[in-house]
Design a protein around this nucleic acid. Structure first.
Lengths: 341, 341
DNA sequence: AAATTTCTGATTTACGTACATCAGAAATGG
DNA sequence: CCATTTCTGATGTACGTAAATCAGAAATTT
């Protein structure tokens, strides 16, 4: 049977109250007594029963999720996952508030972050726009002992406690290798479509992609990056224009959102032009395009996993507990038409 | 505030004891009263506090894991993950016993299964060898109301409650497409190395692989399957022999274990022969081979996820609770040298 | 209508922890 | 050595549920 506080008390020769004071770091215990209790805890291998402790505490975790508005499928999915998390609120003892801010809008994000201060909040998760002002606002929160987790996109050199998202450099590298290998030694041009170079995840994907392309696929030439601002309509016109400008384009990598527009542009030139295409984010549109062969591979991050991981990390940080890094690693999913879930 | 049993009792106009009888399906409640209580439960949206319930019950789950012996890295990793699970036993209220049986040994597996009967066991997880005798033994357990979960390899048409493993047909298809695309339209022969056609996962991988090869890559010709019995030494000699027999081999798919032997065979012909290689299971050997370019892609199933999922499912089944299928889906990981964890 | 069976209510204890209160012991100061 | 402060023990309540007991009400049978 698993040891309890009573066993510690008996082993250390003190009362339950004293054990409780030591365990919960309350004052009123002499140093020698404290050490005696701590030794007993180690010796008999006591582990706190978290379930019983939470029950006794009646603890709830008020959490804030700051996510961008915008109608692309990924952010829609992300918001929906956060919403799903609110449905589990009573079970997980969370109380989640969703704050929506316009995408790539630094002042809006900063004021959303500052609004959290002073309130009794157990953690903040945000999709970071990588700017000094945001970094400063996160720093203010962290210095107030509020756990902060970046979600999907990280914040350079910031004090955030954790990043719940994929390794975007690795994602870009993986995309480059898939595209390069799928093109099997052919020569030609590659077009990269991004959302905005303001967000770190897009910059990192591009960097990883460019690195591998340069290192390993010298026959493939990268055209200037198209910035589609994660907007389907803009993406469509940019890609269509590029395709009509150059007949040498044989590969496309969309490292941002706006896949709907890209797919439309691809279908418009479909039978004549033969293009190998790698994109990010599995949505109903990319899934259909993958099945019918319009695109060749989809790299995906599971928004549900990211949200659940962020919640676990915020709760653990709020309780001063360590997070199990390995368990919180967000994996990069690679989908071909054969392994769709 | 979340409703409790007291709230149900008040709402239904009955006592706590009656609510308890309804909730725990104990006898001694008239039909009309039972319906009244159930209506109240639905109306106020009561959700059982599982933590409190487990605390009150002091429930422990005695589980049995039946895993093959054998020194290949994957099974070693699987056993180690089960062992890790035993370390979490006190937290998760499990009591895990590991039973090792020789691989591909049907009678041994059957007697291990039958040994469980009569004991007070909350669930059995097994790496199935796909044979009628095993199916019958699983059927016997299930009819005794013991939750049974297959792990890694499934059992055809059996009564097992759940399968904790990847979709192996999809895995085979994915391997075929990766290999086919990486070979970029070249013509040649493909060698497939398997462990044993006695286990369903290997059969299914081969089937998926063959299907896609036939459908989509007519220029690639499949040689007869090599059965390496998941043994590195045997794998090495089989592959070496095949490579010396035919100079037309340009691709290899190892759908089983024994990667150490395969890698050794590849290195022996390394500078001259140019081979595209896809294998299963990320181990220290395959990881190193991937990094140095001896192999091109690794398909992986995360043994840790599988074990944890199996435990969750057995506990839920033992409690008569539904499992969330989506959460228990085991993903197929695709690793290139760029996205290694 | 009495006897019996079946249901229901009231009450209590327990699970392991948190937290508060109060009395008394030990240590410290003068 | 007394007064004060600081520490410790004893005790009780609470969290939400499970489970047991016993008395009494209601339904059923005779």
């Amino acid at each position: 049977m698993r040891p309890t506080v009573h066993d510690i008390a008996a082993a250390a020769g003190v009362s339950l109250a004293t054990v409780d004071r030591v365990l919960n770091q309350r004052p009123g215990v002499r140093l020698v007594t404290r050490e005696k209790v701590e030794a007993a805890i180690r010796e008999i291998g006591y582990i706190r029963d978290v379930a019983a402790a939470n029950l006794a505490k009646g603890r709830v975790y008020p959490l804030v999720f700051i996510v961008p508005t915008g109608d692309n499928s990924f952010m829609h999915g992300l918001r929906s996952e956060v919403h799903h998390a609110t449905l589990r609120a009573s079970i997980e003892r969370t109380d989640i508030r969703i704050v929506e801010v316009p995408p790539f809008d630094v002042p809006a994000l900063v004021s959303a972050l500052d609004a959290v201060q002073g309130q009794d909040i157990a953690g903040v998760a945000l999709v970071a726009t990588d700017a000094p002002e945001v970094r400063a606002a996160v720093g203010r929160l962290v210095s107030q002992r509020v756990p902060v987790v970046t979600l999907v996109s990280d914040l350079t050199d910031s004090a955030r406690h954790h990043y719940a998202g994929i390794d975007n450099i690795a994602a870009g590298r993986t995309a480059a290798r898939l595209l390069g290998r799928f093109l099997g030694g052919r020569q030609g041009e590659i077009t990269v479509l991004a959302g905005s170079m303001l967000v770190r995840d897009h910059r990192e994907r591009l960097q990883g992609f460019s690195d591998v392309m340069a290192e390993e696929f010298p026959k493939l030439h990268l055209r200037p990056v198209l910035e589609g601002r994660d907007d389907p309509d803009l993406a469509r016109s940019l890609v269509s224009k590029a395709l009509s400008e150059s007949r040498d384009i044989i590969g496309i990598y969309n490292l941002g959102a706006g896949n709907r527009g890209l797919i439309a542009a691809l279908k418009a030139v479909r039978p004549e032009r033969e293009l190998t295409v790698v994109v990010h984010e599995l949505t109903q549109h990319t899934r259909a395009a993958l099945v019918e062969g319009t695109i060749d591979a989809v790299l995906n991050q599971d928004a549900g996993h990211e949200v659940r991981s962020a919640i676990r990390v915020m709760k653990a940080t709020a309780d001063g507990q360590a997070v199990i890094a390995d368990q919180e690693r967000i994996r990069l999913d690679i989908f071909l038409k054969d392994n769709l879930p």
